[in-house]
Amino acid sequence: MSGFTPDLELNQNEIVKQVERRYERIVGISFTISLLASIALGVVFWQGGQTQAEGALLFVVLGGLGFGIVAWGKYLVPQGPYVQEREELRSPADEKQAFVESLERGESLLLRRSFLVKLLGGAVGAFGIITLFPFIRSLGPQPKKMLYVTNWKKGSHLVRPDGSKVHVSELEVGGVLTVFPEGHAGGAISQTILIRPAFQDIVTKPGRETWGPQGYLAYSKVCTHAGCPVGLYQELTQQLLCPCHQSLFDVLSGANPVFGPAPRPLPQLPLAVDSKGYLIAQSGYNEPIGPGFWERA
């Protein structure tokens, strides 16, 4: 410990005592502080607990113990350095030889009945595979068409998260809303983002002449990159940004990816207006929504 200048008039024995007492004192103080903090911690718990007080007092309790113990181990017991021989890791050659002989003796005894060995292997293997099968098959259903379909069907009403239908008059130009097919409000797969960039019908791509009635556009809200909800609508630049990995989609050109890692446009939901003025889907999505997978061409 620096800054310590012992009285040089003392004889060596005295100095030893003096130095050791100093270290003992440091360790003792450390343990005492820890003890007192433990009591304080008990009081805090008794009073109902308070996170910051608990953390700070735990720090003092544990830190006092740790500092004291380390200081004890560092300043009050011999440090060496001590030396120790490393034993040879490798076994002596005759040991190895004996081991190989033992192994081979047993092996030859077993292999004498090699047919039984094979049969044993086959029986154990079969048991293993057979028991694995129900385990794996019970974990979940086969994917089948799961990744190709959503709950959107021809004529599905667009509803808000609370289940209320969306009327064509309800969204401001420049407004945005998350919608679902009626009966499936809140669904993770069918979630769709409804945007109204203009008063007029919008054509985003050839073949989609009727998909955007009265300036409404609807895209799958599941990012084609890693599946996050593309909930970030930049109204002035007419772009959708995915908050997870910053893929940027151009709303007016069919949600084409213009920046970032997304490989495909967001699928567009063809919209129509029913006789009462509520928004409906002309059909479901015409392609699988969300990120790619092996079976998808």
Partner: peptide, 27 residues
């Protein structure tokens, strides 16, 4: 030694109490 001990202990306790007071104020 005990006398010398008291000073840092008192300081430590004071610090913990002050810390607690500070945090409990936040709380």
């Amino acid at each position: 030694t005990v006398g010398r001990l008291l000073v840092p202990v008192a300081l430590g306790v004071a610090a913990s109490v002050a810390g607690m007071a500070l945090f409990s104020q936040g709380a």
